[in-house]
Amino acid sequence: MTTSVQTKTMTMVQSINDAMRTMLAEDERTLILGEDVGVNGGVFRATEGLYEEFGAERIIDTPLAESGIMGTSIGLAANGFRPVAEMQFLGFIYPAFNQIMTHATRIRQRTMGRYTSPIVIRAPYGAGVRAPEIHSDSVEGLFTQMPGIKVVVPSTAYDAKGLLISSMEDPDPVLFLEPMRCYRSSRMEVPEEKYTIKLGKAAVLKEGEDISIFTWGAMTIETMKAVEQIENEQNISCEVIDLRTLYPLDKEIISQSVQKTSRALIVHEAPGTGGVSSEVLSVINDTSFLYLRSPVERVSGFDTPVPVYSLEQEYLPSPEKIKHAIQRSITF
């Protein structure tokens, strides 16, 4: 006996829209706030149709002020609402940083649980779409070190809906990063009904035996390309894991995979130093040190600002660089 689940073919940006529509219909406390999220439906169309369906009281075109969006969301959340605050691009989140760092993530502790901040901060992020300056930042590492918040990054339409609904139901603030390159890069069948994907759980995109590759966001695309090429060229079997939640990391999947393959590579587009890859390394170190047959490899962006787009392909991890790192690990 199988029960049939109604599905619909969606891009990631459509499934994000669908997640918000689902929660807006289910929970009247849900509000969507941001720049151009209402009448315009969002600059990426992530909120398209929501204004027409749920009205201006719930789908709110705000003034162009990120700190104001975040600060008023904190007040709304402390007083019973569940705001989804859109930062138009992650590179524009910096004016809101103080509100997130000193209030959204701390109000629960500062009031011993009396007030909380169940806010989802949605932000498109990442390079590779020839966007103007500052529109391509990957600063997830600034937030994974911030106590009180969770950091979530889907890379597929299916995951995006389930993870966004989980984020919207989470009792604490969640930074929900949306890789712009994945918004429309592929379509897949997505259930029309509500479903959730637990935060803190990674996904095995491809099983393999010789090396574990940990990545997230749009770098899943580059990683899968590299893996396809190297597996065709050589007798190497790669396991690819999409971390999906960057804080807290999925310790179980990371350790199980590394203990199986004995080798690891981390691929991300954020600058190399001080970011999430260091924490993945730390998990491997803590759980699987004696299983390793070679040093853990990393392919990342540089310790530079994300460049203007004439140079962004040089900045981003490429299949060539990823293949090279796999090779280094295997032949160590």
């Binding site: 700190s67 104001g68 975040m70 600060g71 008023t72 969301s73 904190i74 007040g75 709304l76 959340a77 402390a78 007083n79 509100q99 209030h103």
Partner: peptide, 8 residues
């Protein structure tokens, strides 16, 4: 902004 938010 919090004061605006709670009043809102």
């Amino acid at each position: 902004p919090h004061a605006t938010g709670v009043a809102w």
